[in-house]
Amino acid sequence: MDKVNFEVLREQIDSLVGSKCEVYDAIGNDDALIIPSERLMDVVALIDQIFDGAHLTTITAQQRAGQHNLIELMYHFYQKFAFTIIVRLPAEAPSIASILSILPGADFYEREVAEMFGVKFTGRTETPPLLLPDDWDQGPPFIRKEVIDE
């Protein structure tokens, strides 16, 4: 919400990624930035470094209506001001680097996204299910097209 600090952060991320990242301003109360998915680890490391430890609130995953070929992952941070980093993954074989090595607190959130949306997190030894029962065999509950279009 503090526009000045978000601008500073955005500049740093832009220079890190090498191109101007799209600002997504449809979210009330939060500033959001869309970054390419392969640069996630670098951006998170940068955030951690700038703020001397980044406070990750959660990772939200969703599919937008009309865009069922994409899964959107939002990494919500809160560090004196609130901001969000958005990555978009293809829905067929979604896979992204795990930020567990930088932020160990992301463990539960990644596990939940993995089991609910079928996203594969690389760089983790294992991603056991968090909330679904052990004998759940019907695939990620959120992602089936027929379930969402109901």
Partner: peptide, 18 residues
């Protein structure tokens, strides 16, 4: 149409709604 994030202080800590 729209999206919003609200954070509030539950007795146990930070509650987050998207």
């Amino acid at each position: 149409e729209g999206e919003v994030i609200i954070r509030s202080e539950a007795p146990r800590g930070e509650l987050f709604y998207y």
